[in-house]
Write a protein that binds this DNA or RNA. Sequence first.
DNA 1: TAATTCGGTTGATATCGGTCAATGCCTTCT
DNA 2: AGAAGGCATTGACCGATATCAACCGAATTA
Lengths: 252, 252
Amino acid sequence: MRPSDLQLFQKTEIFARLGEATAERLARNCQVKDYPKNTMLTEQGETAEYVHLILNGRVALTAECLDGSSTIVTSFGDGEIFVTAAAILQQPYLVAAKTISPCRILLIPVTRFRQALQTEAALALLMVDRLAHHWRLLVGHLRELKLHTALERLASYLVTRSPAARGAAHFRLTEDRRTIAAELGMSAECLSRSFQQLRACGVRVSGSRVHILDVAQLKKLYRPVVPAPRHMANPADETFERSPESVHQQTH
Amino acid sequence: MRPSDLQLFQKTEIFARLGEATAERLARNCQVKDYPKNTMLTEQGETAEYVHLILNGRVALTAECLDGSSTIVTSFGDGEIFVTAAAILQQPYLVAAKTISPCRILLIPVTRFRQALQTEAALALLMVDRLAHHWRLLVGHLRELKLHTALERLASYLVTRSPAARGAAHFRLTEDRRTIAAELGMSAECLSRSFQQLRACGVRVSGSRVHILDVAQLKKLYRPVVPAPRHMANPADETFERSPESVHQQTH
DNA sequence: TAATTCGGTTGATATCGGTCAATGCCTTCT
DNA sequence: AGAAGGCATTGACCGATATCAACCGAATTA
């Protein structure tokens, strides 16, 4: 672990929420490895050996079929940990992990991770938070896939990547077409055609460069879900009363 | 909370893992409600008010679109808790929850749940476990949807519901066609046609009764993913060393 | 410079699955 | 029993997207 790695590590949410001492101990002596783009990090069906913390780069979780076809289930970027579910449950990976950019990754041995989960309340709470986020990520993907057309999914993708929320925006795509297509659940050809269709909505692409004339217009196309119209006040604020005998608890 | 409710509650995983005292305190004075089939429990965009524990029945999380179309993202059955992610993150629901059978549900106020999460390590660990499971559930759904045809998804659905893993099997479907179709991400018509196609594979359906001549044959059709061919031994069993100063940790 | 390769685009065609409408079947109500 | 409503099925049709093949342009190599 080089000084630059430590610096990256310290910027992560995991570090901030665990506190320096615990985070340091979790990462102590861990391997840090560089991987070129398109490297398989783990294979479907393998047992989890490490929890991966992305110091730098982007990793996709890919599902594969017996017939060779594969698709991207979701992807993670800087500062994120994966595939924690398999590590937590000690079950074989449901999906493979593949780098979709050059990556630098911190490898935390599963046994250590699982042990820390038991003893460090902060880590358990952090994982609850992360897993809740990851859950919502997948819920979002499922909704997109089931409810929106390829064109709409691309529009959504561009909007989320756009630096500006309204008006004009220009930015660069970080992934190649095939990867974007796989993430959005369509073929590369369909992606290309969708880009063409979006020209009518003021979207210009050339290579990795994207220029959007009006982000708000794109959003309209995308038909986003209803954004929290009504909010009910919390009626019963019954709290959880902690009692002394809760320390010795019988399990089952 | 009636005696029969307590009995149901005591059979749940949450009760077993929390221990009697903590579980009892979490559920104390909570409302328990009956809902008929097809009741909306929560709406998309609302702020979480209760964590729902299903004592009995089945609940689907449905995503809706501005144009009125909707689909089932996933569903939960007896003993499961939802929609914990929104409660944990204190963010509006991404999906709505609807009963797809008559349900009896225990309602735990969010504030109490969140408080217990902080103070009860067992609950945090339980949630980590549950969320990890739920994550894998969604990963499975995404894989199905992206990689398999409607016919294959139905085959998979039948196989998972079949009491026998090989040979002949007969059982009953617990949900109506429209619900099954929504869960599998297809129209009711497509589901009906898929059932017809499966006759060629030795599947007979009549109302809710299903008779499968050979479950193994259905599995072949479904082209399941590679089932953990290689298993690597855990090389580094570096453990997490707990040190005394880890108690006072600085958060950010 | 020519050849090659690779990623991306474009076109033609096929297929899967959705929609709409009609029908059938089962249940319930009168 | 007859009528009515709800759910499932079936058929006709269509649209979205995949697939296959050809082509293009930029970068790389001979």
